[in-house]
């Protein structure tokens, strides 16, 4: 594929820095991450808690507030002028882009709606400025869009507490997609839902994405969701991207020892093979292990892993791994 990526993340680094009472702490939550997202593609990011997934999302979306600081690298969207990050961009430009080009479905998105505003007012607050037109036009557009997510127009009169969790989640998705953005960042949008509702919501995200041709950056720790939804997948461990590639390749032939373990440890219905957990605990990012951050728990660790940090290497078409043990021979 030679198409221009819609998002190019290039050696992005963002650290939490704090200094209290003379104690200085630096937590490298996003450490040298690079990947591309093509148009009309769902890129998934997986990793356990505190592996830096949400921080990466925030850095890409430009939502950087202290103690988080951008150290280096860039996240370049194709709809932005070249060589500009969202972070530090002109507020007027940001206001134009936000919601019409780039939207963000937050973590715990059931609870992000303002409890004191009716759904109709929330839609107006967010989207009216980008869509324009008269009030009645906007209303028709909203109702049409809601029907795509199988929501009744009567939800517009409701307050958030009157809706169930699944409905609120769908309202949030409707809000994020009503302006037909080119890029949607979805951070754990379905974790609080029951499995039946979750499947429904994922199906809707998928069909809306296919219909509008937007790209989605989808973050969740649930590997089942990744298998069902995403086209490409990146695996994060302790602030680093350790493996990235097509979802099918990663599930069928995982290369990095962490990914391999993650995929083999998943229990499946109809399969009674004994599964094991990984020994050791996830590293503390304030004091990460030297070299490869996975080496204290890695069955394949050798001396080089303890001292030298592995770089991302291409091992097959669109399949990259950061591991000395896997791609040790080529440079």
């Amino acid at each position: 594929m030679t198409t221009q990526p819609i998002l190019r993340v290039d050696h992005l680094k963002a650290h939490f820095r704090s200094s209290y009472f003379g104690v200085y702490r630096e937590v490298p939550a996003v450490d040298d991450i690079s990947f591309d997202v093509a148009p009309n593609e769902i890129f998934g990011l997986a990793g356990e808690s505190s592996s830096g997934k949400t921080t990466l999302m925030k850095t890409i979306a430009g939502l950087i507030t202290p103690p988080l600081e951008l150290i280096g690298g860039k996240a370049q969207f194709s709809f932005m002028p070249p060589e500009t990050n969202l972070y530090g961009a002109d507020p007027a430009q940001l206001a134009r882009i936000r919601w019409s080009k780039l939207s963000y479905i937050m973590q715990g998105s059931m609870n992000v709606l303002n409890p004191l505003r009716q759904i109709r007012s929330i839609f107006r607050d967010f989207a009216a400025v980008h869509i324009g037109g008269s009030n009645s036009d906007f209303e028709t557009k909203t109702v049409n869009h809601l029907s795509r997510l199988r929501l009744d127009p009567s939800v517009l009169d409701a307050y958030p507490h009157e809706l169930s969790g699944g409905m609120r989640q769908r309202v949030t998705i409707a809000l994020a997609t009503i302006c037909r953005p080119d890029f949607i960042i979805a951070d754990e949008p379905t974790t609080a839902l029951d499995v039946i509702v979750q499947k429904e919501v994922l199906g809707m995200i998928r069909s809306i994405q296919r219909e509008m041709g937007s790209s989605v950056l989808f973050v969740t720790h649930d590997m089942g969701v990744h298998a069902a939804l995403t086209d490409k997948l990146g695996i994060m461990y302790a602030g680093c991207l350790v493996e990235a590639g097509r979802t099918a390749d990663i599930f069928n032939a995982p290369q990095h020892p962490y990914t391999r373990h993650l995929i083999h440890s998943l229990p499946r219905i109809g399969d009674t093979v004994q599964r094991t957990g990984l020994t050791g605990t996830p590293p503390n990012l304030a004091n990460p292990p030297s070299g490869c951050r996975f080496h204290p728990r890695c069955p394949l660790a050798s001396d080089i892993c303890r001292t030298e940090r592995p770089m991302m290497r291409q091992i097959a078409t669109e399949h990259r791994v950061a591991c000395h043990a896997v791609a040790g021979d080529d440079a």
Binding site: V195, I196, Q198, K199, L202, G203, R206, S207, D222, M223, G224, V225, A227, A228, L229, D231, T247, A248, F251, N252, I263, L266, R268, I269, G270
Partner: peptide, 27 residues
């Protein structure tokens, strides 16, 4: 393996298996 009640079946079918079954496994 073989749920009988419609709700159990629905619940079981909603489980997303960690297996890539083609790019459009949810509709």
């Amino acid at each position: 393996s073989d749920p009988q009640h419609p709700y159990s079946r629905q619940l079981r079918d909603a489980v997303l298996s960690p297996q890539v079954t083609g790019s459009l496994s949810i509709q």
